[in-house]
Structure formats: C-alpha cells, structure tokens
Simulated scan of single mutants.
Amino acid sequence: MPKNKGKGGKNRKRGKKEADEEGKRELMFKEDGQEYAQVTRMLGNARCEALCVDGTPRLCHIRGKMQNKVWVAAGDIVLVGLRDFQDDKADVILKYMADEARLLKAYLELPGTLSLNDGGAEDGGQEDSYVHFEDEDIDKI
C-alpha cells in the first residue's frame, strides 16, 4: 500500500469552520453607492435577482470571495453595491444573517413591510400545517 502523502482530507482543504467568529461580526450599514436588497430568486452562475429597498429589481452578481463560502438563498437580506454605469445591475457585497437582519429592521434601516426569511417560525411553524373546519363545513361534506 502506498503511503499517504497528503496532509488531510477534504475538510482541511475547505478550511476551518469558524461559525463563532461569524456570529460576532460587526453590523455593517449601507454607505454611498450601496443599498439593502432581498433576494427574490437564484438564477445560477453566481447571479440572483434581488428587489432593492428603493423598489428597483436588479440583477445581482455574487462576488467571487463569497461564492463557495457564503450560501445565498431566496429571501435572504443582502447588501449590494450599485453600479454607476448600469442601474439595473448590482454586486452582492454581504449577506446578513437572520439576527443581523432583525437588528437592521429594528434600527429602521429596512422597511417594515419587508418580510424576513428566518429559516423557520418562532412558534415552531405548526400553525399553518393544518386546516381548521367549522361544524357547518363538515355537514356540507
């Protein structure tokens, strides 16, 4: 049998999982040339369609630094950098985690009509999983 010449498996090549550092990062607010947006759908090839807070739908490109490390899904709140030469396109700079998005909403940076994708309801999500029938509805059946 040949000797193993490598220094580890695939998890070493991917890098360490440092979830505790990500939870402690500083909250970034938008600056000039940036806008908050909610991803409406993923298009593939590191692109997504996002609805910005100013009401403009934009085609966004996920930057290479984020592509394999940060997974962006539909409903996520992101910070996009606007382009000077193309108003209908933008670049995703940062993805906000669920608690950071709640903080942005509390600071009134995000509009109150925006629904946050928390990955699950706080009450366990059991409220919408069944249908209530009245006695009159059952008699009609």
Rank of each mutant, 00 (worst) to 15 (best):
P2L: 12
K3W: 04
N4V: 09
K10N: 08
N11Y: 04
K13P: 05
K16I: 00
K17H: 03
K17Y: 01
A19N: 05
E22I: 06
K24T: 13
F29L: 15
F29W: 04
Q34H: 02
Y36G: 05
A37R: 10
A37L: 09
V39E: 05
R41Y: 14
M42W: 08
L43T: 15
N45Y: 15
E49R: 11
C52N: 00
V53N: 06
R58P: 01
L59I: 14
I62P: 09
Q67S: 05
V70F: 03
V72F: 14
A73R: 15
A74G: 15
G75S: 06
I77R: 10
V80Y: 06
G81A: 05
L82Q: 02
R83T: 14
D84P: 11
F85C: 07
D87S: 14
K89E: 15
L94M: 08
A98N: 14
E100N: 01
A101P: 09
L103F: 05
K105S: 03
A106Y: 14
E109Q: 13
P111T: 07
G112K: 04
T113W: 05
D118L: 06
G119L: 01
G120V: 13
G120S: 10
G124W: 01
G124C: 05
Q126H: 07
D128R: 04
Y130L: 01
H132M: 03
F133W: 10
F133R: 12
D135T: 07
D135G: 02
I141Y: 13
